[in-house]
């Protein structure tokens, strides 16, 4: 059901959106965060970057976002005009401005592009409705729960209607019930808005539930260990979460991750 280095026809036929070609990143303190990373993100993909800490998955995301430049190799956007301004980014923490209301926080990306409060109001209203926060426009972040803050953060990342959404372990700090709910919500948004999502996580269960493709990464140096399709139909709901298929897929993904972790340790021992 889940095989390394294969890809189903479904994702293979889609046009590529972005390729990383031999991307490496070295820091001045001698750490090699990434080395020779090749990966292709296709349009409409929900790709998870899964790996142990230190495998450079967040660095890869920052390079895609343009927040960091690769030491070697480069990015190929396949002629797409997607620039920095056409992507949304969701951080590990909600990263809201504590002094600003929910409305103003969501307004920020549009405001920075010169869109006035009145012009933006309709779009912000729709976005807040999508993340079930209608009525909380005037609240400030500290009045919200952790899950609600994350919803504001997601609304903010999508208010500019980007094609590509980058998420850096966004739900890692949330409780399980909230995380499940947000997983459902993000899948819904992905399908409705025809997004392409790159989702960084260290949770096997989350990556299997969400993505149509998982890229497993190993550490020291950060590299792609394997890549496979999650062959289960969307929409995925609570029934999928408790199905035998899901359990089997999770077991396969766990084994792949274990392989990546072992490879990381071997690399470490080999060097030492």
């Amino acid at each position: 059901m889940l095989a390394l280095q294969t890809s189903t026809e479904r994702s293979a036929t889609r046009a590529p959106l972005l390729s990383l070609r031999g991307v490496g990143k070295a820091f001045s303190n001698g750490v090699t965060a990434l080395s020779g990373v090749d990966m292709t993100i296709r349009q409409g993909d929900f790709v998870s970057l899964l790996g142990p800490s230190g495998c450079g998955k967040s660095t890869a995301l920052r390079i895609i976002a343009g927040l960091s430049t690769p030491t070697t190799g480069g990015l190929d956007w396949h002629g797409e005009t997607i620039g920095q301004r056409d992507l949304g980014f969701v951080f590990q923490e909600p990263t809201l401005m504590p002094w600003a209301s929910v409305f103003d926080n969501v307004w920020l990306p549009l405001r920075l592009r010169g869109v006035s409060r009145a012009q933006a109001a309709a779009e912000i209203g729709e976005m807040l409705e999508r993340v079930h926060l209608t009525g909380f426009e005037k609240a400030v972040p500290r009045e919200l729960s952790g899950g609600m803050k994350m919803r504001v953060s997601i609304a903010r990342s999508l208010v500019t209607r980007p094609k590509l959404l980058l998420m850096d372990e966004p739900f890692a700090a949330l409780d399980e019930i909230t995380r499940f709910k947000l997983n459902d919500d993000i899948l819904e948004l992905w399908q409705d808005r025809k997004l392409t999502v790159v989702f960084v996580t260290h949770s096997v269960f989350e990556s299997v539930f969400l993505s149509n493709r998982i890229i497993v990464m190993a550490a020291r140096p950060g590299r792609v260990h394997g890549e496979f399709d999650v062959d289960a139909p969307y929409p995925r709901d609570e029934r999928f979460r408790t199905s035998a298929d899901y359990a089997a897929l999770c077991r396969d993904a766990s084994e792949a991750l274990l392989g990546a972790i072992n490879a990381s340790h071997q690399a470490y021992r080999g060097r030492a």
Binding site: Q84, F89, T95, L112, R113
Partner: peptide
């Protein structure tokens, strides 16, 4: 992170 967000949005 907020500074990164500001940079991302030009």
């Amino acid at each position: 992170n907020l500074r990164d967000l500001f940079a991302l949005n030009g």
